[in-house]
Design a protein around this nucleic acid. Structure first.
Lengths: 110, 110
DNA sequence: TGACGATATGTCGGATGTGACATATACTCC
DNA sequence: GGAGTATATGTCACATCCGACATATCGTCA
């Protein structure tokens, strides 16, 4: 769906660039958003690999399907704090968190 | 002062161990606290190296002296979010954040 | 097409985090 | 000891985040 939405937007003449260039964010705001997106994508990866639904994951980390969706989407209402705590709850080590943070951001979401 | 306090405690027969072993935290809670402490110490390091007072730092990141003190102390009322945003505001890159996270925790604060 | 399971989006009450202020405690220097 | 500066601690009003629920949208299969 994300994919199809992107295509629709592109069809209408939008160009997809970095989030930071679209909104005009200060460098540190941009870095913050990047961090969030990296953690978010990794969270989704983890879930998909396990063949969990968002509902399943929510149960595991004692949250709700909607919040998981927002986490994976990097929604503004989700803090780095929650993302990191969630990854830790799934058994990630701080070393893994660090790896995620340094990793190159995935080209197009998910 | 932190140092002198530690000595006083040790003189009274206290043993200084990991936070996680004192309180009884679950693995992920422990990891969370560790992370916080690492970021907190690095923040203080940064400030001291620059010969800033907590007040100075507060001005730079638009916060208050008391909150900076709490950040550096890893106070429960301070989120990872705030710590990371603060470091980013001071110009740290995500790579540096990652380095801090993987780093071994300093033996005794500061 | 319709129905079904999964994901996304909007909203809300209660929980937690935040800057600010007051105040206590520590650490010089005189 | 007292004055001055820095740091720690307590509190509060306001802001932000969170889980939960409702509902919309998507994707697939018949």
């Amino acid at each position: 769906m994300r994919e199809s939405k992107r295509k629709r937007l592109e069809a209408k003449g939008w160009r997809i660039g970095s989030t930071a260039e679209f909104l005009n964010l200060s460098p540190e705001e941009a870095a913050y958003v990047e961090l969030k997106i990296k953690l978010a994508s990794r969270l989704r990866e983890w879930r998909v690999r396990r063949q969990f639904t968002q509902g399943d994951l929510a149960r595991v980390v004692k949250s709700s399907q909607s919040r998981v969706a927002k986490m994976e989407a990097g929604d503004p209402s989700v803090s780095l704090d929650l993302l990191i705590r969630t990854l830790l709850a799934l058994g990630a080590s701080s070393r893994e968190i660090a790896r995620i943070i340094t990793s190159r951001r995935p080209a197009t979401a998910a």
